[in-house]
Design a binder for these strands. Structure first.
Lengths: 214, 214
DNA sequence: GTCTATAGACCGATAGAC
DNA sequence: GTCTATCGGTCTATAGAC
């Protein structure tokens, strides 16, 4: 791994714990065994390191979101194409359940993903742009994704009819809420994972056309 | 208003925007028209100002939570007493709806409340204690509150039977999610308020025993 | 591309006059 | 209880040797 990549890795670790202002160039250089002056051979400033992390994470974020088999990364639903329709038409509630649990499992276990999420969490009021990035990645994108899927599931008669936007929030919001607890208190990870599983299971029991519990 | 109170007010404003490390003593003293040296006549250190804000907010938080007519501020449900039972037995779904919308309206419109919430949001990974404070105030307390209420509503036959803990998350999580968007992007306030209203309304339509839409 | 050394600004906190 | 002045330290960033 190149020195530049090692710097980005260490900087992300520090930024995600102590924030941009709480992290000094020495904090980043120290663990790497180099002097802070060496950092300036790879980056123009501390700010540029931060921005490169954001830019790099955007690339990885898009790649991950594409693996979820949808293409509305920019938040515009117009970006849909034939491939998306194929994915939707074949979806089942069990499939969506597995899809989202895969998202949760990855987001919770992947160190890089968690560091970026925590960094954006504590940087979200630093600038309008960072706030919008947070909302786009962790709220709007997922809500749009679920909303579209619920629409299709309703049309297909898999789940009961209703407002797909409201339903998407009811489905997804508890997931990020429990992920928040997990981020703050890692020893509650098991409790959160169980809560998410319970939530997803009960959600589909509630919304399935055949055999309602509630 | 005393100088000390003015300092706490200005410090909170700064901390909630730029965080503890991003705020200097000059940043706090400047807008008040005093020198940073004067701050040390009222507080021992910057850290003490921060801690006093947290402590003061804890008092106000408890007072607000008591006004919601429940008494499990410490997170322990054993703290319930006769008064709580009376509150529960008289509750209706409309009452709960109004109760939570009052919470949302207050949290969203009150400047102090919002500043504390944003400060805790960007400080939640600073220490274990701050993370627990965040979880306790904005997640566990509200979930425990709603869970207990849903239990009673189920017993009373007002809403359909089910897992009250899962139901509480489905009800409350979308609320904090939309409050998060509002905090990051204040110009989306109307959209968020409407989304919360839609959510609360649809939730009770879904869970009411009589007349299910889904 | 790494180092040491340092510039120049700002930090938190203190001293002492008023 | 406010001020100015300042201490000692750290910060970002640069200069220049190797």
């Amino acid at each position: 791994m190149s020195t530049k990549e090692l710097i980005l890795e260490e900087a992300l670790r520090q930024f995600s714990q102590k924030g941009f202002d709480g992290t000094s160039m020495s904090d980043i250089a120290g663990p790497l065994g180099i002097s802070k002056a060496a950092l300036y051979k790879h980056f123009e400033s501390k700010q540029q390191i931060f921005e490169e992390i954001i830019a790099e994470s955007e690339v990885k974020y898009k790649a991950f979101f594409e693996k979820l088999s949808v293409h509305f990364l920019t938040g515009s639903h117009e970006a849909m194409n034939k491939q998306d329709v194929d994915v939707y038409s074949g979806i089942t509630s069990e499939g969506l359940c597995e899809n989202v649990l895969a998202f949760v499992r990855f987001s919770m276990s992947d160190e890089y993903s968690g560091q970026v999420r925590r960094m954006l969490t504590i940087s979200q009021f630093q600038s309008r742009e960072l706030g919008e990035t947070y909302t786009r990645r962790y709220v709007d994108a997922m809500l749009g994704y679920d909303e579209k899927l619920f629409e299709q599931l309703m049309k297909a008669g898999v789940i009961k009819p209703g407002n797909p936007k409201v339903l998407a929030a009811m489905f997804y919001a508890p997931v990020i809420m429990y992920m928040g607890i997990w981020d703050r208190e890692p020893d509650r990870a098991d409790e959160c994972e169980k809560a998410i599983r319970d939530h997803v299971e009960q959600f589909f029991t509630m919304t399935k056309h055949m055999g309602s519990v509630l």
